[in-house]
Design a protein around this nucleic acid. Structure first.
Length: 111
DNA sequence: CGGTTGACTTTCG
DNA sequence: GCGAAAGCCAACC
């Protein structure tokens, strides 16, 4: 383990923790950057989760991560945003007015 | 080493 | 319900 005078898990573990949390999201569910930040013990580091998403490895279900408003956090016209929405819809996630109802599709949530 | 940046969140008008 | 502003924190240059 790292020395305790350092911050919590250590910066090197941050990305791994974020990626691991994202991999735990089941298909057909979504979560928010802030929720992941909280899961890895950094409730205020939501932006860094987004940053980690930009650097995410292939095979990671990054499309299941959206913002707290239930909206895709990318320019609506961008290729990535369109791909994200399409993938989520393929998994059964419903967009209403361009937004996802986090109360129904959010994770963690009821089973 | 220090200012900028950004796939965020929350609050206010 | 929406847009603007402020707050936060690590990566980048």
């Amino acid at each position: 383990m790292p020395h305790s005078h350092d911050r919590q898990a250590g910066a090197d573990n941050t990305y791994a923790a974020v990626f691991d949390a994202v991999r735990r999201i089941p298909a057909g569910r979504v979560t928010t950057y802030g929720r992941i930040a909280r899961l890895i013990g950094r409730p205020r580091a939501a932006r860094q989760v987004g940053y980690a998403m930009h650097r995410c490895p292939s095979g990671l279900p990054w499309h299941r991560v959206i913002n707290a408003q239930g909206r895709i956090s990318l320019p609506a016209a961008s290729t990535a945003a369109l791909a994200q929405r399409r993938r989520l819809e393929e998994e059964g996630v419903v967009f209403i007015g361009g937004k996802v109802d986090l109360d129904r599709f959010g994770w963690p949530d009821r089973d």
